[in-house]
Design a protein around this nucleic acid. Structure first.
Lengths: 112, 112
DNA sequence: GATATATATTTAGGTAGTCTAGGCATAGGA
DNA sequence: TCCTATGCCTAGACTACCTAAATATATATC
């Protein structure tokens, strides 16, 4: 994925929302999801494989995403995930939670 | 502290910064630190005692804060914490990390 | 043909930090 | 006297993340 130097404990809880967001506009395979997050955050968020794949299984087990094996445009075997209806609801909830949470923290932590 | 209904895994990693911030303008005892955080975040962040006190010991062990037993203005025994120099440095670092991290997440997660 | 690299997935085991759920003690008010 | 809010402590569970390894293959390069 990347050289990576641990992204502090701050990622906790946000990975799932980021994954779901990456699927909001159509299916993507796991590896591409990780890339999308890293690209979108300018590498501020490092997505470790040992975090990403377990997160995908978790979310699949909860019915937030669904998987299907397919072929990438570069002709490689990959597992494509897509958001379920339930996942879309979750994304909305978690996005709102993030907004409220980050605003609250920033209000306290950052200089007025 | 409060009725409390778990504040999701999002708190992970930010509690220490919030604690240090609460001490930036002078010593406070543990219970008051928790109150300060809850008040300052409008109860968005619920500070459980089982999270707070272990965090305080951790931070004391790392030399970020120092403790001293004292008396509250309501005449009760309490342990007062204050930021060390090292703690002040940590607070700066963690505040910057939070700013970068939350901006990155929000950029990806929140509607443009 | 051989080798290297980027892509793509899997998983075991460790770690860190939070929460649950209890405990104790006391000041002040009803 | 009892209740509530204040104030601290801690064992054990849980969850999610990370480390570190393994596997497989398409494509480019030598």
């Amino acid at each position: 994925m990347k050289p990576s130097k641990r992204s502090s404990p701050l990622l906790h809880g946000t990975l799932e929302a980021l994954v779901m967001k990456s699927l909001a506009n159509g299916p993507r395979h796991g590896y591409a999801i990780g890339r999308w997050i890293e690209d979108g955050t300018g590498d501020v968020i490092q997505v470790e494989e040992g975090s990403l794949y377990p997160a995908l299984y978790r979310m699949e087990a909860r019915g937030w995403i669904e998987a299907e094996w397919g072929q990438t445009e570069t002709n490689r075997r990959a597992k494509f995930y897509r958001l379920t209806k339930e996942g879309r609801r979750r994304l909305t909830v978690e996005t709102e939670q993030w907004a409220a949470f980050s605003a609250a923290i920033s209000r306290v932590l950052l200089p007025a």
